[in-house]
Design a binder for these strands. Structure first.
Lengths: 214, 214
DNA sequence: GTCTATACGAGGATAGAC
DNA sequence: GTCTATCCTCGTATAGAC
């Protein structure tokens, strides 16, 4: 009566693909952490989004913190790699700034959860996990561009440190509000392809105009 | 032997001032909520910051959510009142924009926790508590100014909706990073009076230059 | 109004079968 | 590798004395 070998003819299908399982968990975790931050995220909620058992999280990532670290690393990898290969020192400050902004906005448009993840990490965890691994400081790259531009006189006499923060805010704040904008009933989806492209345009335009000498 | 009436000669001094106790709780709660958001904040942590017992929170504010609502209302009150009394319709778009920005930056400089509170409310709670009471929509005010300016030709041809978000980001993002900036070892305290004034200057300069017609 | 002590549920983490 | 069942800590909320 019992089927000796056929264990997968039921609805349940334990796929037994380690890499796939990890990827599924990571994806679900990224969503949850981006929405709720580290502390408020429930491992049960992550498991519920996947078809895998909660204990798989602990099997593959040790504990909640381990999973969080993995999410941080994965979500930052693209941005860090992209910025690093730009070779901005070769370019004039104006061009370097535009290239930098386009790269940044491309990355966060591809992964709109990155800004909120960064936010949570900065505010809630005071950058604790961040410091463990962070290789390149994105802000430092931007500050360097601004300094060059001010010195060369192609940017107005701005404070590079302050302005770098403000520029990052211009680019990233959009994604923070994205989840919240039901206030605007025109049915605009802020994360639609069209809107993301428009945001890229508008942000770059605002910033480039903002640093130009008067 | 026992002192009949003198109950306050011990170190412990149950002050029995309702308003004062509420204020103390609210202040501590604002700090905690700004740092951790609603879910991750522990009522025990709030109580620990004060000298009052944890149960006072429930006595005065019903539950954690009630306390959170009270914090939201209090921290937004100043900003809402300030913006409302500006009468920006009377002014030219350029002047109106500068007035608006100065008012906004003044408010958040006075209460640097407001931006993170707003952030948490937007991202984590999707503006749930917010909608319950919110009277004026700050963004709408800014959008209106931008629309007028574009129509009048004193601002460049920008998208008012997108630009409003980006401008808010320029003003507020600074405060989000403020807790985190140990990356910059120059010992700059982002919330010192001098730095806050500089941020106000720099943000206004960046934005006004950014919207000017080319 | 304020405190201490405690009930009770939620959620992180583990054990052990398959 | 994957699942179910369970342990145990932590945190919200309440009861009741003063």
């Amino acid at each position: 009566m019992a089927q000796p070998k056929a264990t997968r003819d039921k609805q349940t299908k334990p796929v037994r693909d380690a890499a796939a399982t990890q990827a599924v968990i990571l994806a679900a975790a990224e969503e949850e952490f981006a929405q709720n931050g580290f502390t408020a995220t429930r491992t049960e909620a992550i498991a519920a989004k996947t078809r895998v058992a909660k204990s798989m999280i602990y099997y593959y990532f040790k504990d909640k913190a381990g999973l969080y670290r993995a999410v941080l690393a994965q979500s930052h990898a693209d941005l860090l790699a992209t910025v690093q290969k730009l070779e901005l020192e070769q370019l004039s400050p104006e061009v370097a700034l535009e290239q930098f902004l386009r790269a940044l906005l491309d990355c966060v448009s591809r992964n709109p959860r990155l800004p909120t993840i960064m936010f949570y990490e900065a505010v809630q965890n005071q950058g604790t996990f961040y410091k463990e691994s962070s290789s390149v400081n994105i802000d430092a790259v931007l500050i360097a561009i601004l300094e060059r531009g001010v010195t060369a006189g192609v940017f107005r006499s701005l404070d590079p440190f302050q302005t770098a923060i403000n520029i990052m805010g211009t680019c990233l704040f959009y994604f923070v509000g994205a989840g919240n904008i039901k206030q605007f009933p025109q049915g605009k989806r802020l994360l639609s392809k069209a809107m993301l492209e428009q945001h890229t345009q508008e942000a770059i335009a605002l910033i480039l105009a903002g640093v130009r000498p008067s």
